[in-house]
Design a protein around this nucleic acid. Structure first.
Length: 597
DNA sequence: GCCGTTTTCGGCCCGACTGTTTTCAGTCG
């Protein structure tokens, strides 16, 4: 039996549990339990995309709101939250050695391979399972097993070694890291004379917040030469696989880069297929099958006419058009209503990077004696960069001065001096509107760090949480709403406090937050800092549906960070927002009117 | 075990690559 702390189970732990249940079914009888396996994997993926803790949905009686959770899984989850265990799962997992499960996070290990090894060598301890397998391989005891050989034994050793250095199935890169890496590979590929087009694929093309592998597509009439050229990429550590149409390499940092090469006449269908998401493609295939068409990366087969040739597509636009659909932007291909919208020709006109007219969350090196961090560039350097970006306005928003080290009078004096400096900067920078902001701590009590009289020295406030992260949901919601209630507070910065791969962030009662923002003309920030991307795309979509407005900010601490706006816009796009939803697409007069209202 | 624009029953996307094999099983996306 695998041990779980059922009572406090987070979404991550439930995802892990469901994947283990699916693996257990595969080991028992893959054919008999085929559809249970699919169902549990699908449910795990749906939970991965949920922006709400299942525990919360359980308390609200809304578990079945998640597509992929039907009556049976709902019952099992309710049993889990009520009693702390699930009898059915205990039975399913009971005759599988717990040593199987840790192996499943190693690339190239699936349920069958893990189970074969664990049961043949009678391994029981999950804590030592990986080390045990390594020892057996080193002792040359694996290559003699049926279905294994010398090559698979050495592959196992290599996989475990790479796993130890961070190449796991679950570790993911932040978007900006993967995007930069992909651009390097694309620049390299485009130097080859046979490369006609090169484009990112998968979660990277859809601009997910985190990316597993970097996938790239190439259109070429000489795919063999391009694949040979690709696997010689200078940053390569080794070739993982290489076939006639695909190849995969490992690069420094333990990440995979996969290349797909097909002739130009199939580039459209290939791009579509490998952009995904899986859920989008499954839904699109089901939609197509009802219309007697079968989709693959090579094109579309008409099932109604026997022996009819494959219809090929040079572009995605033509591919979708053939299915009777408008072209769907990659960012919203998640099977969350986009196929229906494309059919009815009412897809959203998503906000674009070129729509952005200002950046409001900028930290400078101005000596404000902050309790948090400073920027490294000066106010004037930031303003110059904003001008280069053709912005019409910029908000200087250093952290508030530390309240522990200063009296009220000193705080007034510090901000008074800052105001006079910003006023003179405004006068010498007439081509751009400079807005005097502060990023203000909402204290644990819900009060702002600075009193109202002193706040008259700034145009408006960005408010945010920087302390007591473990406060419970109810108190945190009250705290945030109290902070936002100050008339100067216009934007709630990085609203969940999450740090990708590091910190889940605190929980808020989002319906109350959304409602408050709509009624009181407050905006939620979409923070473009690559490790934040906060709000998350899912919450952006929910907030938009509630009528909330947004400001996309970079939270820059240096001029180079101001280019991260692009990643914030991609989050906004994944949340289905249009130009009218994003306040910093407004012209300067309108924007200043709002933020000082 | 989930789900519904022919369905509350009877379906459930499609293919590439590798290693151990001589026709396939396993993993991956």
């Amino acid at each position: 039996m695998v041990w779980y702390d059922f009572f406090r189970m987070s979404n991550l732990e439930i995802i892990n549990l469901f994947r283990n249940v699916a693996a257990a079914y595969s080991i028992k009888n893959e054919y008999k339990f085929k559809f249970q396996i699919i169902a549990y994997l699908k449910a795990a993926e749906a939970i991965e995309h949920s922006s709400t803790e299942l525990k919360t949905l359980f308390e609200q009686g809304k578990l079945q709101n998640i597509p992929g959770i039907g009556p049976t899984i709902k019952d099992r989850l309710e049993e889990l939250f009520r009693t702390g265990k699930v009898k059915h799962f205990e039975e399913v997992l009971s005759d599988i050695s717990p040593a199987v499960f840790p192996l499943l996070d190693i690339p190239s290990f699936g349920p069958k391979k893990a189970s074969k090894l664990v049961s043949h060598f009678k391994l029981h301890d999950p804590k030592t399972a990986i080390e045990d397998i390594k020892t057996l391989a080193l002792e040359d005891k694996i290559s003699i097993l049926e279905g294994f050989g010398e090559k698979s034994q050495s592959d196992i050793l290599r996989a475990i070694s790479e796993y130890g250095k961070g190449t796991t199935k679950s570790s993911r890169m932040v978007l900006s890291y993967a995007f930069t890496l992909a651009q390097e590979v694309i620049i390299y590929l485009k130097k080859h004379k046979d490369v006609i087009e090169a484009e990112t694929l998968g979660s990277l093309r859809r601009m997910n917040s985190t990316i597993g592998d970097v996938d790239i597509a190439v259109a070429s009439k000489n795919t063999k030469a391009v694949l040979e050229y690709f696997v010689a990429f200078p940053g390569k550590e080794r070739i993982i696989e290489k076939g006639p149409t695909t190849a995969s390499i490992l690069i420094g940092g333990g990440k995979h880069v996969d290349l797909l090469a097909l002739p130009p006449q199939q580039f459209g269908s290939m791009l579509q297929h490998f952009t995904g998401s899986k859920n989008h493609n499954v839904a699109l295939r089901e939609y197509s099958l009802k219309r007697h068409m079968s989709l693959s990366e090579r094109g579309i087969k008409l099932l109604s006419e026997k022996g009819s040739p494959l219809v090929e597509f040079t572009s995605e636009e033509k591919f979708y058009k053939y299915l009777g659909l408008d072209w769907i932007p990659p960012e919203i291909r998640e099977n969350e209503g986009e196929i229906e919208a494309a059919l009815k020709h009412n897809l959203p006109d998503l906000v674009k990077i070129g729509d952005i007219r200002g950046d409001l969350h900028i930290h400078t090196n101005y000596p404000i004696d902050s309790s948090h961090d400073y920027g490294i560039s000066s106010m004037q350097e930031m303003i110059n960069r904003a001008k280069e970006l053709k912005y019409e306005y910029i908000g200087l928003s250093d952290h508030n001065p530390s309240i522990g080290n200063h009296t009220k009078n000193e705080l007034y004096s510090i901000l008074s001096k800052r105001k006079s400096i910003i006023d003179s900067i405004k006068k010498s920078n007439k081509s751009i509107r400079v807005i005097n902001l502060l990023e203000m701590d909402i204290l644990a009590s819900g009060e702002l760090a600075i009193d109202n009289k002193t706040l008259e020295l700034v145009d408006a406030l960005i408010v945010s949480i920087h302390s007591s992260f473990s406060t419970n949901k109810e108190d945190m919601t009250r705290r945030v709403l109290a902070g936002l209630s100050n008339p100067k507070a216009k934007i709630l910065a990085h609203p969940t406090g999450r740090l990708l791969n590091l910190r889940a962030g605190y929980e808020l009662d989002w319906n109350r937050i959304f409602d408050f923002c709509v009624k009181n003309n407050k905006a939620l920030e979409i923070n473009a800092w690559p490790e934040r991307l906060d709000l998350s795309d899912g919450l952006v979509k929910q907030a938009k549906e509630a009528g909330v407005k947004f400001v996309i900010n970079t939270d820059s601490h240096a001029i180079s960070h101001m280019d991260n706006m692009f990643y914030g816009v991609s989050v906004a796009r994944r949340g289905w927002t249009e130009k009218k939803d994003i306040l910093n697409t407004l012209p300067a007069n309108k924007f200043v009117e709002w933020i000082t209202s």
